[in-house]
Design a protein around this nucleic acid. Structure first.
Length: 563
DNA sequence: CGGCAT
DNA sequence: CGTAT
DNA sequence: GCCG
């Protein structure tokens, strides 16, 4: 939250603060020059030619001077993560005198328009400049944790075209491949002009962070109060603003953005005037908001339940515990409270990957030939995750049946899984079961991925002896049949707004009217279906999903359309 | 004014 | 109603 | 709350 006040014009009226000096002659700088006066060396190893060229352009366009040897650089960028391999490209003694960062630092900073904190992108853990020498623009305002470097995402199967004969992507039990080496292409960032998040490129970091955080408070309040439609509008507005690549300094900039109407425009105007949004501040300070926010952090407590609890005088987790101790609530809630403190702690990337490796190991033991992809925020490049989403399948269609149980049993016996919040299966409807709800009626086609895919929502514990933090971690295990695997991966990679708009777009394209011939595809994460003849369409890669929906491919790291 | 993801 | 993205 |  606490950000330094960099070069914001900041017409903050009223109180203190010296009057803004008219010091801002950089009008010709179309591209933020956060690397001005900085020498940069890019280690070519492990980079494709095009990726290298891309990074060089990126660095120079932001003011860097490129130097051919690391010894002369203020900043060294590299895609090499293995310490030993890195050592071959730059002596450790030299390394300790400058920042040695992941290339992702440049990608993120360029998208943001300012230098990201270096600490979050150390190529080698703990390797930082000993003496704070010349790194002018790169002041490490490192606020906190985030140890691991966002690395090229690991994915299991290959896009299948590497080898002609075996149709199965993953070779044997091995898994975890890389998707693409170059990854993002940040270059000329387009202004968001589409109404659909799935047609925009939205990086993880935004130059308008504070503004959007304020708007997100109002959105959250609407959610908590059950005003879903309003909340949706804020989600859309925030989403489109997050894709806006420059600092917003005037409402004229956002005037014509889709999803930004009179109300949101006025809120932005207030923010630009006063560096705050009064409605947001009021909400944030209100006891009710704080209570509902805290209560809904407990697994299985949603906004409706939270409001009901609040009405009965329960205003925090401690009081909820007492309320449960008096015999209220169900088993899931009791479990959730048991480990609530652990679940509040975010998971570093490295541990996410350890957990996935552990799951893959179990898959190998239970049914050889499986592969997985880590989805969710982790796949979108977040430095930490709230939970771990693992999608898996078997290379042969059909072999995956019953796999979720076997996996959960195996990992439970192992002591890795400590709690089970729920296991769902295709065809099994969570309604009409258990308690006496005579929910005879159920929609004819309830096919959401919540009942077409098998999955387990569990809690795991990876002990420190195995590299874990010794904390309970939420893990979603989702099993997809081979032919819908990539649809499931797309569906579970998010972000939420990205998914909503993906489906909305699909629907628009599909539904009759539209003389748009050639189209007519239904999308859900259980697959793609050509409506014309209700024929399923099999895809073998994520890109094909986008193609078939008539969309430009958006890499996972540019799907961060939520706050 | 109806729709807003599944 | 909750969960998931 | 915004849009078609």
């Amino acid at each position: 939250m606490s950000k330094r006040p960099p070069l914001l014009p900041d017409p903050s009226s009223s109180t203190d603060r010296r009057p803004p000096p008219p010091k801002r002659p950089r009008l010709q700088a179309q591209v933020p020059q956060f690397l001005a006066g900085t020498t940069v060396h890019i280690v070519p190893a492990k980079l494709s030619d095009s990726a290298l060229a891309h990074l060089c352009c990126l660095a120079e366009s932001h003011g860097a001077r490129l130097v051919p040897i690391p010894q002369r650089a203020d900043v060294v960028l590299t895609a090499v993560s293995a310490p030993k391999r890195l050592e071959r490209h730059l002596p450790l003694s030299e390394a300790g005198k400058r920042w040695v960062l992941s290339t992702q630092w440049l990608e993120d900073s360029a998208a943001l328009g300012e230098g990201r904190p270096c600490e979050e992108y150390l190529a080698l853990k703990g390797l930082r400049p000993a003496s704070r020498a010349g790194t002018p623009a790169l002041t490490t305002s490192a606020p906190s944790t985030a140890p691991s470097t966002p690395a090229p995402e690991p994915v299991s199967p290959k896009p299948a075209n590497a080898k002609p004969p075996p149709p199965a992507p993953g070779t044997s039990g091995r898994t975890t491949n890389d998707e693409e080496i170059p990854l993002n292409f940040t270059t000329p960032w387009p202004l968001p002009n589409s109404r659909y998040a799935c047609k925009r490129r939205t990086p993880l970091y935004t130059p308008n962070e504070e503004l959007l955080r304020s708007l997100a408070v109002i959105m959250r309040s609407r959610e908590l109060e059950g005003e879903d439609r309003s909340a949706l509008s804020y989600a859309r507005g925030i989403s489109v603003l997050k894709a806006y690549p420059r600092r917003i300094t005037s409402v004229s900039q956002i005037h014509s953005l889709p999803g930004v109407g009179p109300k949101i425009t006025s809120l932005v105007a207030q923010y630009l005037d006063t560096s705050a949004i009064p409605e947001s501040s009021t909400i944030l300070a209100s006891a009710r908001f704080q209570a509902l926010e805290e209560l809904t952090k407990v697994h299985s407590v949603g906004s409706t339940t939270a409001r009901a609890l609040y009405a009965r005088g329960v205003t925090n987790v401690h009081e909820m515990r007492e309320w449960v101790a008096m015999g209220n609530g169900g088993e899931v809630l009791r479990m959730a409270l048991e480990i609530h403190e652990d679940l509040m702690i975010r998971i570093p990337r490295a541990e996410v990957e350890l957990i996935a490796a552990r799951v893959q190991k179990a898959l190998d033991a239970v049914l050889p030939g499986c592969m997985h992809t880590i989805c969710g925020g982790h796949r979108r490049g977040k430095p930490t995750s709230g939970d771990v989403d693992i999608i898996f399948t078997h290379r042969e269609q059909g072999k995956e049946q019953g796999l979720v149980e076997k996996l959960v049993n195996y990992l439970s016996n192992d002591g890795f899984i400590t709690h089970i919040f729920g296991v769902m299966h295709p065809g099994h409807n969570p309604f009409s079961s258990s308690s006496h709800t005579r929910s005879k009626v159920r929609p004819a086609h309830p096919s959401s991925h919540f009942d077409t895919l098998s999955k387990a929502l569990v809690v795991c514990l990876l002990p420190p002896s195995e590299g874990g933090a010794g904390l309970h971690r939420r893990v979603d295990l989702i099993c997809a049949p081979r032919d819908v695997y990539w649809c499931a991966v797309v569906g579970w990679s998010g972000s939420k707004q990205f998914e909503r708009d993906l489906r909305l777009w699909a629907k628009q394209e599909i539904l009759p009217a539209h003389g748009r011939l050639g189209r007519g595809i239904k999308f859900d994460s259980s697959g793609l279906t050509r409506l014309r003849d209700t024929q399923p369409i099999y895809v073998d890669s994520e890109k094909q999903v986008f193609e078939l929906l008539g969309l430009e491919y958006v890499p996972p790291r540019l799907r961060n359309a939520d706050m």
